[in-house]
Design a protein around this nucleic acid. Sequence first.
DNA 1: CTGTTAGCGCCTTCAG
DNA 2: CTGAAGGCGCTAACAG
Lengths: 350, 350
Amino acid sequence: MTVTLADVAARAQVSPATVSRVLNGNYPVAAATRERVLRAVDELDYVLNGPASSLAAATSDLVGILVNDIADPFFGIMASAVQSEITGPGGRAGGERMAVVCNTGGSPERELTYLTLLQRQRAAAVVVTGGAIENAPHAAAIGGKLRRLGEAGSRVVLCGRPPADDAPDAVALTFDNRGGGRRLTDHLIGLGHRRIGYIAGPTERTTTRHRLEGHQEALAAAGVADDPRLTLHGPYDRRSGYDATLELLRRAPELTAVVAANDTVALGACAALRDRGLSIPDDVSVAGFDDLPFSIDAVPALTTVRLPLYEAGARAGRIAMGREEEPPGGIATVHGELMVRGSTGVPRPY
Amino acid sequence: MTVTLADVAARAQVSPATVSRVLNGNYPVAAATRERVLRAVDELDYVLNGPASSLAAATSDLVGILVNDIADPFFGIMASAVQSEITGPGGRAGGERMAVVCNTGGSPERELTYLTLLQRQRAAAVVVTGGAIENAPHAAAIGGKLRRLGEAGSRVVLCGRPPADDAPDAVALTFDNRGGGRRLTDHLIGLGHRRIGYIAGPTERTTTRHRLEGHQEALAAAGVADDPRLTLHGPYDRRSGYDATLELLRRAPELTAVVAANDTVALGACAALRDRGLSIPDDVSVAGFDDLPFSIDAVPALTTVRLPLYEAGARAGRIAMGREEEPPGGIATVHGELMVRGSTGVPRPY
DNA sequence: CTGTTAGCGCCTTCAG
DNA sequence: CTGAAGGCGCTAACAG
């Protein structure tokens, strides 16, 4: 039914091994023979059987990418960058490597499931993006899985997540969320803000905690009291920003600034303020985090911390492909850059 | 080295066949035996070998998704939706199906390459998103490839792309780009606009052409002359919208509205207008297409045509999984909805 | 440079 | 309900 390597061999009058060799190009073959084989491949419209090839070679051309949700540009950009680096010849039979994108929704159970599935596929590499859940059993389970993946031959790279205990050979490119959060709030305090609302992400996530800690660090350094009533937790979405902002306004009408866990949440905050008839930044300053593409088009443009998502993803991809040296100690910190734009200004006189 | 099904069988004191049967759960096995096997799997930390399994079963758990660029929410949303539907038991050995996301950059060569790679992987299904290139040889090559994929057992679904000749069994969910473009410009004409700039996408793409044709249809229906100097082509990105808007303003300062090929381009247009000190919509109205999540947060909020990207992707995913009946004739048209918001208004008196 | 020979690890008839 | 046996299509030593 479907044409196999043996058919090609027969037609080209060579042995199957030779066909395999010209296909994989990793072994000397006479030019004339190669031509003949290639022609046969073409004439028969032959397509290599990937599973068979992977089975025999004990490795595959698949690279796993774990993301919370690929529809979120934060993850989409990293995934796109990883892809751009795994592309190009290098896979089996001159083929290219392909990206298996797994939406985990941030759930550790799904992360675990997908890691197992990727191990099952004998993925050449796995890039795990996004923050980690802070929960000992889960962390241990995932760490163990990552270690076993590594032992089974997959290169493991964490992108935007702290190093995993239990998985010593996994390279980690960690975002400096704490430092970014610190600089952002420093900036607001420098402008004169003292009553600053903070809309944090979901609890039990490293990203959430680190960004929040940076904020608190800045408050403490400036001797500003950290009123717990001004910090609200919620998902990383627009709605959360909208609702939390209304709640903050209710709790503390005197507030002059709102810091959001990320840009998406910040947009929600902006919408809520507009709906309340408050002007940004004259009545209330707003800041985000990530600097996603749309942030510059907010009106006023969003002050935020730019994370080099594409660059980090690309680097993760190169390391996963063994095309870039691992950072010393297997850990590198990726810093964010404060982008001061129109959405923050001096507080209103009051 | 790595534990195999035979190891599990030995430990559970059954034959490999039995282990395979409990893993795949598609054959009666005594409860007690199953327990024993499952325990052995657990104790040995056994992970099925995907390639071996796929080879023997002649099918895989992989579902291909072709997108222009996964970093673009237009594609990210569809990809996310497809994923949500292929998730869940149903794959081999109770595992789940995984999505292989391929960034083609809209290049037909890369589309072809990836389709071959997916055929090589014996993908269970392939969902192709985005418009098609209008170029006979390419279209034929891709159509042929899709047909062969189908013949090889992969279910093929086009999502947001017109039906492919040469691939009769590929289901197509086509966006009504023409109708959407028509309604959008009808809306502007209804407001009183007569000098309308149009920033189209790249040439030779069905999406570009259909949206533009809808616009021209509306002009013709209203008896408005279609000045070719008011139509510019460019990529589907913000920069293109920015530059094209400046150029349009240069060519026709009297223009009162700009229609962009999509929301991203529209944001660029808004930025250019702001930079020129023009107010939206008082000086110039702006409209986009797609209704991506950020469009509602533009200021003023963007008038656009909402495409149900998530719904379409989900439906494509269900059809790909055989969980939803194919539309009659294998073709369904997905309509967009005009979303009138603040970025369009009556033209300035002049 | 090329052919021969064993598997890779699993699934799936076919017996029992 | 369970075991035995063959083969899925390809690759990777070995010989030559």
